[in-house]
Design a protein around this nucleic acid. Structure first.
Lengths: 235, 235
DNA sequence: CGGACAATTGATCTACCTCAAAATTGGTGG
DNA sequence: CCACCAATTTTGAGGTAGATCAATTGTCCG
C-alpha cells in the first residue's frame, strides 16, 4: 500500500521497491477512539493506516480541543516523529482501524540508503503542511459554511484519490463535535450550518456517508481549489 | 549561516560542510513588501533569509488574506518548493531583506549525495508544519488576547534562538494589519487587544520593538509551551 | 428494552466585526 | 529643519456570526 502511494508520484526501482517490501511490519487492529501516540511520547516507530480513520489533535485547557487533520487509508500520519522525537500533539483512531507499525531505525535506514524514497516521504509531509495551511486559512478567514463545505470537498478528493469515493458519495465517519473541533466551531453551530447546507440541496449527510448533490456550488461556496493537495494529476 | 543552523541540531562531517559551502549562491537585496515567489509559480530555486523579515500568505477573495508564517534570518521559507513544484501560496518580504537563492537542482543533488543533510532540511520543514498546527490551534480555539500573546512568545523565542532577541526585547517589524491577517482578526480588534495587553503591563510595542515586561504571565495567558518549536535545548 | 452517544432545538449573550473618521507616525524632499 | 504625504494606529458607534447553556429527541447496538 505504501509502495502504491509512493509510485503514484514517481516510479521506484526494483531495488527500492524490494527494500520497502522488506521493512518489518507489525499489523495492529485498534478500536475506535483509541490513542496511537500521545503528546509528549517519544515513539520508536511510525504508522501507516491500512483501514479506518484517524485524526491528529491537541487538547488545550478547559475541554477545548483542536483537530489538525483527518487521516484515511494510505496515510502515514506520524511520519514526522522520524525526525522530531517528541510528539507535540496526539494521534488517535476515529473508527476501528488497522495500522501497520514500522520501526524508526529501519525507516531511517531506508531513507539513508535510498534518498529518492526519502524524498517521496518528505514530499508527503510537505503536503501535510500544505493542508494545515489551507485549514488555517479556512479557520482564520472563512465563514462556518465555507469551512465545512471546504472540508467536505477536501475529504472527497482525498478519498477519491485512493479509490474510496466516487459517484458523488464518500464515507465520512465524523461526528459533528469532531467537525467543530477541526474547524474551530461549536457542535451547535456545526449542526445549524449543516442544516443550511442540506436546505440548499448541496449535500446529504447521514449514517456516516456524505453525498454531494452539487459539487460545483460546494466548491464555489468554499473557495475550494485542490491545487494545494498536489495530487499526481494536478502536478 | 545555513551550516550554523543545521549544526545546531547535529554535527556535520567536513565533507558535508564543504558540500554546503560549495553551493552556488546568488545574493539579492529586496525592498520591503516585495514578492519573492507567488502562488502558482514554479520556482527553480529556494531561498535562505540572511537579513530582514518575510511572510508566507495566501490571498482569498474580497481582500481577505491569511498569513501562515513570519520568517526571520536563518529561515528557509520555501524549501517545500524543492518537492512540490507549484507554489500553493506566496512568499514576500515584510522589511527590506537580504536573501540567498540556491538552485533546486543543486540542492536536490546535495540531499541525494548526503542524506543526512537532507534529513536535517526535512526536519526543518517538519518544524514548519508544527508551527502551522500551533497557529491553527490558536486561531481555532483561543481568544484574540491569547493568540496575540502566543505569537509574541513564539517570535521572541525564535529570535532569541538566532541571537536576535535578549533582555526581554526583540524586533517586531509587523503592522497591526499583518498581525490581524496572521491571527484571523481585524486590525481594529488587534489594536484594542494590544491596548489591553499594555494596560495590564505585559508588554510594550513601539517603533518595531517588542518589550516583554512579564514573560511568565504572557506565556500563561497564551498557553505557550515552546515544545512544538523543537529547539535543540528542548529536544 | 435500555443506555450511551449523537443530533437537534430554543433562548440568550458576547467577542469580535463593520464602517467611518480622526489622530499619530515615520519618511521624504525642499 | 520644516512641511507634507502615505501608511499606520487609534477612537466611536452599532451590528452579527457564532458561542453558551440547557434540554429534548433520535439512533445505534448489545
Amino acid at each position: 500500500m505504501l509502495i502504491r502511494k509512493l509510485e503514484s508520484i514517481a516510479p521506484l526501482s526494483d531495488e527500492e521497491r524490494e527494500a520497502i517490501h522488506g521493512l518489518p511490519t507489525k499489523i495492529r487492529t485498534l478500536q475506535a477512539g483509541q490513542n496511537i501516540v500521545h503528546e509528549g511520547d517519544k515513539p520508536s516507530q511510525c504508522c501507516l493506516i491500512v483501514e479506518g480513520w484517524a485524526c491528529r489533535f491537541k487538547i488545550l485547557g478547559e475541554g477545548r480541543r483542536q483537530i489538525f487533520s483527518f487521516h484515511i487509508p494510505g496515510d502515514t500520519p506520524d511520519l514526522q516523529s522520524l525526525h522530531l522525537h517528541t510528539m507535540d500533539h496526539s494521534l488517535a483512531t476515529i473508527t476501528e482501524a488497522t495500522v501497520v507499525l514500522i520501526p524508526h531505525d529501519r525507516m531511517m535506514d531506508l531513507t539513508m540508503r535510498f534518498p529518492r524514497v526519502g524524498a517521496l516521504l518528505w514530499r508527503d509531509t510537505l503536503i501535510d503542511a500544505a493542508i494545515f495551511r489551507e485549514w488555517m486559512a479556512g479557520i482564520g478567514r472563512k465563514s462556518a459554511f465555507g469551512r465545512i463545505a471546504h472540508l467536505f470537498c477536501e475529504m472527497y478528493v482525498k478519498l477519491e484519490a485512493v479509490g474510496l469515493a466516487g459517484d458523488n458519495r464518500c464515507p465520512l465517519p465524523i461526528t459533528q463535535a469532531e467537525l467543530g473541533d477541526a474547524l474551530g466551531l461549536t457542535t451547535v453551530h456545526v449542526n445549524r450550518t449543516l442544516q443550511a447546507m442540506r436546505g440548499q440541496g448541496l449535500i446529504t449527510l447521514r449514517g456516516n456517508t456524505l453525498v454531494v448533490h452539487a459539487w460545483k456550488e460546494l466548491c464555489q461556496s468554499s473557495e475550494f481549489d485542490p491545487a494545494y493537495l498536489h495530487l499526481a494529476k494536478t502536478g
